[in-house]
Nucleic acid binder design. Structure first.
Lengths: 163, 163
DNA sequence: CTTATATCAGGTACACTGATATTC
DNA sequence: CGAATATCAGTGAACCTGATATAA
């Protein structure tokens, strides 16, 4: 969320080098930090944290998913997901019900309140995302997209057949 | 850190759209998540967290900086920085001494052990960073760098006179 | 008196490990 | 039996707000 209480006389750091010459990892981190800060500020008035928004988004894409699968998708432990789900349930945004096939597992879904909350959040997130591509030519956007996708693909991706 | 305990039958999510067509913010988040995960895995054997590494890096760039300025640079509250500094001091990586001009403020520096730790960390971080640009043509790298810098610049940057 | 600095106290959401009961 | 699921307990680093003492 960040506080920035007043001005400082110290210039922004950059692990030695700065600007377009800086370490690419530092630039990536800096850029994402700014984006995340904007996201958190957009979500805060609605009372949702970023991990919570992330889980609600996944639940919207995979209604009825079990907690263990949610953990795998998020690359988190089942225990961590359990905590987040508990907080979301306390807030009334999700519903847990019996799993149709596995009696130990749970069927987790968005509640109507959760669906509405997610819709409101997405609206705000949409605005924040638009800032990312302001004034970027289509050709450059294409290059950036390919770079990001390649990065994300190198590590993650269980995959098999969609649907 | 992430745990990924076994395979899943569920394809990776993407807020509806996927791959190069996905939301740019989602792609940015995904890409950074992968990079951060690699960084944490590289730092973990040395016993340092990412925020701790970040603070050590800043201390290396601005030896003798005060906690309040450190907080402003990191966009964190002085209280948060205080906690991180306490942990770093307990580990013996930093040294606090009297400030030459402001008697209430503290002069925070890397200890020899902290300098060595930072050096070892940087070595590992360097390797992780190289992955980010593997197989990226110089022209595309230039586009990506400009995009990242523009993003980081739009929000941050206090600035005035160095020194 | 006002501001800046550091820190104490308390709280919360996330992250982990480990242990346990249940189900397949 | 082993493997997967959910959840209990405890721990810890990072974030916050609010209060406090000191110094400029």
């Amino acid at each position: 969320m960040s506080k920035r209480q007043s001005e400082t006389h110290i210039p922004a750091v950059g692990e030695g080098k700065r600007g377009v010459e800086g370490h690419i990892g530092y630039l990536l981190r800096q850029a994402y930090a700014v984006h995340r800060s904007r996201l958190e500020q957009a979500l805060q008035p609605l009372g949702l944290t970023l991990p919570q928004f992330s889980v609600l988004t996944m639940l919207s894409a995979y209604p009825g998913i079990a907690g263990a699968d949610l953990a795998r998708l998020s690359l988190l432990t089942p225990q961590t997901i359990c905590v987040i789900l508990n907080n979301l349930e306390k807030a009334g945004f999700i519903r847990r019900s019996a799993h149709p096939v596995h009696r130990r597992a749970q069927c987790i879904e968005l509640s109507p309140a959760g669906l509405l909350m997610l819709k409101n959040c997405k609206q705000r997130v949409e605005l924040v995302e638009q800032i990312l591509l302001q004034g970027v030519p289509a050709k450059e956007e294409e290059v950036v997209r390919r770079w990001l996708v390649q990065l994300a693909m190198t590590d993650a991706m269980p995959m098999s057949e969609p649907r």
